[in-house]
Amino acid sequence: MSGQSQRLNVVPTVTMLGIMKARLVGATRGHALLKKKSDALTVQFRQILKKIVSTKESMGEIMKTSSFSLTEAKYVAGENIKHVVLESVQTASLKVRSRQENVAGVKLPKFEYFTEGETKNDLTGLARGGQQVQQCRAAYVKAIEVLVELASLQTSFLTLDEAIKTTNRRVNALENVVKPRLENTISYIKGELDELEREDFFRLKKIQGYKKREIEKQLAAAKEFVEDKFAEKISLQKGISINAAHNLLSAAREKDEDIIF
């Protein structure tokens, strides 16, 4: 696995180890928070999904009703009503306002419709069929209401979809790339530090052993020197050679340990 062998390119020092540990803590906390955010968004997303399905299906019904009322209006007021309507268009009296709703840091648009100014079509169908025309108008306003709701649901759906994808991507990146990499780096630094410590320990041991040996050597040299001196003294006193004095000394030590003379 490529993620396992990966680590950051750092100098293995105690300071770096501290920094890496802090970063790992940060990454873990970030991961937990993002996971929570993703969950919250998913809950919202499912609610919207359910609402979209039901609203889309009710939309068909409402459009059918409004089409039918238009047909009624046409029948009563005559076919030429559409020309009157098409010609009298000036500025929109029915508009939508959009505002934002904040869900776990994701801004979702919400539309709502409102009427502005007086309706221009008041005089439409004055000659005949005025009531049908007004009914038709009301039916279409109702249709707009449903459509606007559906539009905000749909927009929220798309925005949330995108946001959930991004959040999940981040969660996965933290979990599968950033955290293993930091962990690898930390274990690498720890390994290197241990290695250094062992090396140091070994070096100390070695030096200690060397010192010990030196002291022993010096002690032995001193002892020899003292013995030599003693033999010399004996040889001078008794008039024998130094070798004979050595032999005398060693012979005395070998055989007559308990004889005092």
């Binding site: 309507v85 098409l86 268009v89 929109a92 025309v133």
Partner: peptide, 16 residues
């Protein structure tokens, strides 16, 4: 189509 447009214009959606 024309009918739907007329209906929504009647509701006051149209703008020029």
């Amino acid at each position: 189509d024309e009918d739907t447009v007329v209906g929504f214009l009647l509701a006051g959606v149209g703008n020029v």
